[in-house]
C-alpha cells in the first residue's frame, strides 16, 4: 500500500429529479473521499443511503450533478475522448450485487469474460484472448470446460466468480465491488470474499467495497466510510470506526450487529438513530478531522461543542 491516491472524489453530488417542479432526490450529497493504491475502502450504510449511486457515479454510469472524480491522476467525470475513456473502462471495473442479473443469459461464459477485452481492444488475437480468459477462469477457480457454458447452468457463487473474472481480465487498477456477496448464500459468501482477498494480495488490487454487512466490511477493508442519507458521516480506519465510533449514526449502525453469543445477544441494546438528528440547511455539516485520519460529519454547532469538551 502506498500513499499514492488512485481515486479521489471531491464534493461529489448526484441528484435525481422526478419532475420539473419537485425537489431533487439527493442520492449523493457532497461526498469526498480518496482511496490509496492497494487499499480497500469499505462503504457501508443502510439501504437507499446512496452507496450504490456513489459507486456507479464514480465508474461513470451516472453523470454527477456536481463535484469531481479523479482516477490515476486524471479527471474522469464529464465528457472524455476515446482514449481517456478507455483508460477508465479498462482500468476501473465493477462487480455487481446480483450475480443472476449481471450475466447476459444469451452469451457464453467465454463471450462474457472476453467482452471488456474485445471492447477495449486489449488482445487483438483470438488466441491470446482465449489464453487470457483461461487464466482468469483458473484464477477464480473455474475450469476450462466452463467457458462454453451459459450462465443459467451455474450456481450463484460460480456466477459471481465469473463476474470477478470478467472484471479482472482487463487488468484493472481498481475494482468497485457493489455488494458482491449480499445476494449469495452464507456458505458461498466466504468463498467469494476469500477469492477477492487473495486477488487483492496477489495483484495488489485496489477495491472500493460497497456493502451493508458491517462485520464483513470490517475485516475486509483498511478504511471504512459510513454513509447516511447521501452523506459520508464518518470515515476512518476500520479499527477506529468499530472501536471508537464518534457519530451517532455509526454507533446506531454498530449496535445492530448481532453477536454470536446468546448470553450477550440477549442483552444487546440497539441504539436507535433519530432521523430528526439529520442536518438541516443551516447546519453546514462538514467532515471534520477529530483525530488523525478520523473524519466525522459535524455541523458547526456540534463542532464547537466537541472542541469545548
Amino acid at each position: 500500500m502506498t500513499d499514492e491516491r488512485i481515486l479521489e472524489v471531491k464534493h461529489l453530488c448526484k441528484f435525481f429529479y422526478a419532475g420539473k417542479h419537485s425537489a431533487p432526490m439527493k442520492a449523493v450529497n457532497d461526498v469526498s473521499f480518496h482511496i490509496n493504491r492497494g487499499e480497500t475502502l469499505g462503504l457501508v450504510g443502510e439501504s437507499g443511503c446512496g452507496k450504490t449511486t456513489t459507486g456507479r457515479t464514480v465508474i461513470r454510469l451516472y453523470q454527477p450533478t456536481s463535484g469531481e472524480v479523479w482516477f490515476n491522476g486524471k479527471r474522469i467525470d464529464g465528457k472524455l475522448n476515446a482514449e481517456e475513456a478507455r483508460a477508465v473502462t479498462s482500468k476501473m471495473q465493477m462487480v455487481f450485487q446480483d450475480p443472476v442479473a449481471s450475466l447476459n443469459p444469451r452469451m457464453t461464459v467465454e463471450e462474457i469474460i472476453c467482452e471488456g477485452v474485445k471492447i477495449n481492444n486489449l488482445y487483438p488475437s483470438r488466441e491470446e484472448r482465449r489464453k487470457q480468459m483461461y487464466r482468469m477462469l483458473d484464477m477464480v477457480g473455474l475450469t476450462r470446460e466452463h467457458a462454453t457454458r451459459y450462465p443459467h447452468e451455474f450456481s450463484g457463487g460460480q456466477r459471481q466468480r465469473i463476474c470477478i473474472a470478467r472484471a479482472l481480465i482487463t487488468q484493472p487498477d481498481m475494482i468497485i465491488a457493489d455488494e458482491p456477496i449480499s445476494a449469495l448464500d452464507v456458505s458461498i459468501q466466504a468463498q467469494i470474499l476469500n477469492i477477492l482477498s487473495d486477488l487483492r494480495k496477489e495483484l495488489g488490487l485496489t477495491i472500493l467495497f460497497i456493502a451493508h454487512d458491517l462485520s464483513v466490511v470490517k475485516y475486509f477493508s483498511n478504511r471504512v466510510a459510513v454513509m447516511n442519507a447521501g452523506r459520508i458521516v464518518e470515515l476512518s480506519s476500520s479499527r477506529e470506526i468499530y472501536d471508537a465510533p464518534m457519530h451517532d449514526y455509526t454507533k446506531s449502525l454498530l449496535s445492530a450487529i448481532p453477536v454470536p453469543d446468546p448470553r450477550v445477544e440477549k442483552k444487546r441494546k440497539r441504539i436507535s438513530y433519530d432521523r430528526r438528528q439529520d442536518y438541516g440547511p443551516d447546519d453546514h455539516p462538514q467532515l471534520r478531522e477529530v483525530r488523525p485520519e478520523h473524519f466525522v460529519l459535524m455541523s458547526d454547532s456540534e463542532w464547537e461543542a466537541y472542541q469545548k469538551a
Binding site: G141, T143, L193, N194, S197, D198, S215, K218, Y219, I257
Partner: peptide
C-alpha cells in the same frame, strides 16, 4: 452489555479450501 465484536473475534475462514466445481 455493550460489548461489541472486535477484530480479534473474526477471521477469514475456509481460506485453505480449494474450490472444487
Amino acid at each position: 452489555m455493550t460489548r461489541r465484536l472486535t477484530a480479534e473475534d473474526t477471521a477469514f475462514v475456509q481460506t485453505d479450501d480449494k474450490i472444487y466445481d
